[in-house]
Amino acid sequence: MKKRPARTNRMPKNHWERKNYKWIYLFLLPTVIIFLMFYMVPIIQVFVTSFTRWDGFNSPAFSGLTNYINLFTSGSFLISLKNLFLWALIAMFLHVGFGTVIAFVLYQRKRGWKVTRAVFMIPNVISAAAWAMIYRFFFNNNYGILNSVIRKINPDFDVQWFYQSPWAFWAVTLTWLFYAVIVTLLVFGDLMNIPQELNEAAIIDGASGWQLIRYIQLPLCRSAIATGVICSITSRITMYEQISLTTSGGPGNDTMSLPILLVNAVTDYRYGYANAIGVVMFVIGLVMMGIINKAFRMNETDY
């Protein structure tokens, strides 16, 4: 930005701004109302009533930590925490890893990279509910394509992917595992921002292709990868359709997740308990974000 000499119209401009304060605040009004209605008030309500016993009809009665104690002694809650932990690890390493690898593949600009990028997007533009449904059909034992293919090799094969015990967890995992296009776009964006001179300088210094990736390009898309990790773990915390429309948490509690428990509590009119789950989701999200920011040194710039 060019530095300009001190503006001569500074006074009148300020005056103009002050004259328009009513417009400025009027323009902000809709956003502020939405913020208060759908964020501020609900969040306060969630936090406060998570310490109460509340059925939605009678007024909430303070009950201390009872809801939280009940949560942490409930089997289904502990299983959903374990599932979340496992899914977060899978998301962080396999899902983000896959997305990053594909970003590097695209960056090589070999034939077909544009088509690949365009097509990879498609699962993300259709509704997660429809995608969950497609996978329910895909894994179906009778007419699903997966088992039909397996039966070509082993005619006696018979597995109900979404309804049998160790498989359900992995079947749910497969509905999102490879669809990492957001990570790919983020990392690809960072790769495109690397100054060409930097790559050329490294090649002149005798760096091989792998060294170029390992020591120059990968470190430079650190913050995109971190953002990808945050996005993918956040969507694991709020994963609902992929479970509700396939296994609804079963078999047993094998694929239970926090949003499913929360919805069950709301429909049972156990509002205090539901909001305690909400608080747990909120806190897990914040803690995770803090850890990842630290781990990837997100606040430092590279260039």
Binding site: F38, Y39, V41, P42, I43, Q45, V46, T49, T234, I237, T238, Y240, L258, P259, L262, V263, V266, Y271, A274, N275, I277, G278, V279, M281, F282, G285
Partner: peptide, 9 residues
Amino acid sequence: VPAHSKTQP
């Protein structure tokens, strides 16, 4: 804020 945590309000 996870959208689902505000469900009840």
